[in-house]
Design a binder for these strands. Structure first.
Lengths: 181, 181
DNA sequence: TCAGACATGTAACGTGTTACATGATTCT
DNA sequence: AGAATCATGTAACACGTTACATGTCTGA
């Protein structure tokens, strides 16, 4: 759902060709957002049509090649801002929130404070739910092997939420509360 | 890719109607695996065709309704075992591994020890990569706000891997090393 | 000259999502 | 009587994945 935005943000960080993008999505970016080269070319084509990106003259001295470097147009930048502001994420979409942080780093403060606060509340609620299930279903001293496995699955969820909350609380000061100006 | 297997495993735990499955995937199961009712009905239809599941006579006394309860046939159970054994997962597919644990809990020891060991190695390697990036790019005392955000994104990855490894090491004794018999 | 990386694309297919559609049962 | 929940499905579309296809450039 956010692949075009992931591409836009990557292009904001650095104008690139489809090929370069594919490599970047295989390396650094790929650790939290996946996109194959087919998706990338498809989305680049669409985004040229909608006027979000454009091909720049490749000043890379080798105009001989068919290499096409894309940069983000104003409409594309505005779309990123719109997406960051107007697309509330759910607790599942951890990586989309990382994408928003990346956008914030690339184009300046976008006011992520409110959304982060809300997400913290939602993660806390989910952790609470998990802990209630833990108390209710796994309080026994002795558990069968099957029960221990089910408990392990629940613990994966508990640890995940605890870790996310720990991380998020460190991030709060970085996105802060949006200051009106 | 594993939605049919998620459904099979849910049905192994408890034969259910499509509607019941949809609710279960909205609650407990939904915390780590999502499926809408349209996907569920589509997959149930396919799995009836392939002979993995069948509709049982609804002994729920109200045969008046169109309620259809599905149970897993032997071929379906064998498919789950095959999937668990022969589908090596990548580090990204955390939730698919939880699914495998759930299968292990439902149908007995499937020999997940080897895969877990391999995944632990891969997660350790990834954590190592993250730590190298951390040393290389974020060792400076003073970071601009944008750099701090980029560092936060990396820390999300580091914490995630550390937590997973901590969890996985607790799980090792539960899946153990497969004993030949 | 040959292999491997660079570079861009199309085609087919499978899966997931959103909207539409229908009707029975149960509770107030 | 009406609303909410139970219950199952179809249709259209969007998105992601895999395979196919082509050609250039660079270094050994």
């Amino acid at each position: 759902m956010s692949t075009p935005h992931a591409i836009l943000i990557a292009l904001l960080e650095k104008p690139s060709s489809g090929y370069d993008l594919a490599r970047r999505f295989d390396r650094a970016i790929g650790y939290f957002w996946r996109a194959t080269h087919q998706q990338i070319y498809r989305e680049l084509g669409r985004m040229v049509d909608t006027g979000w990106v454009a091909v720049v003259d490749d000043d890379d001295a080798r105009a001989v090649t068919r290499r096409k470097v894309y940069r983000v147009l104003r409409a594309g930048r505005e779309e990123v801002v719109r997406w960051v502001r107007d697309t509330p994420l759910g607790v599942e979409e951890r990586n989309a929130f990382l994408l928003k942080l990346r956008a914030d780093a690339a184009i300046g403060p976008l006011g992520l404070g409110d959304e982060l606060s809300r997400l913290i509340d939602e993660h806390r609620a989910r952790l609470q739910t998990y802990r209630e299930i833990e108390q209710r279903d796994f309080a026994d001293r002795v558990l069968t092997n099957a029960r221990q496995l089910q408990y392990a699955i629940l613990r994966a969820g508990i640890l995940q939420e605890e870790t996310w909350l720990e991380w998020a609380e460190d991030v709060v000061p970085l996105v802060g509360v949006q200051v009106e100006r």
